[in-house]
């Protein structure tokens, strides 16, 4: 039988009611990307779908302004 992989601990630590994720908080956003600056999947971040969408949007905005890389 295939081994079941234990789910990774969610990184999120965030309430969905908190204010929206801001593209200016680069230090916070940087936690949710891989070494190559890809956005982590929901499995890895532990965000709910709405929060993940906010995260995605914020990272894309930060990338546009040159605050975060597209690839590294």
């Amino acid at each position: 039988m295939a081994e079941m992989r234990k789910p990774a601990a969610p990184l999120a630590g965030r309430n969905c009611d908190d204010p929206k994720i801001d593209y200016k908080e680069v230090a916070y956003l940087a936690k949710f990307v891989t070494n190559q600056a890809q956005v982590l999947s929901r499995k890895r971040t532990g965000f709910c779908s709405q929060c993940q969408r906010e995260l995605k949007q914020a990272i894309k905005r930060a990338r546009h302004l040159g605050l975060m890389p597209f690839v590294q």
């Binding site: 302004l65 040159g66 605050l67 975060m68 890389p69």
Partner: peptide, 21 residues
């Protein structure tokens, strides 16, 4: 003035820039 930063990638040949909020 928000901040002056090194850019994550070059934009129009520039490696640094100042942000105005």
């Amino acid at each position: 003035r928000w901040d002056e930063r090194k850019l994550a990638y070059t934009i129009k040949g520039k490696t640094r820039g100042t942000y105005l909020l």
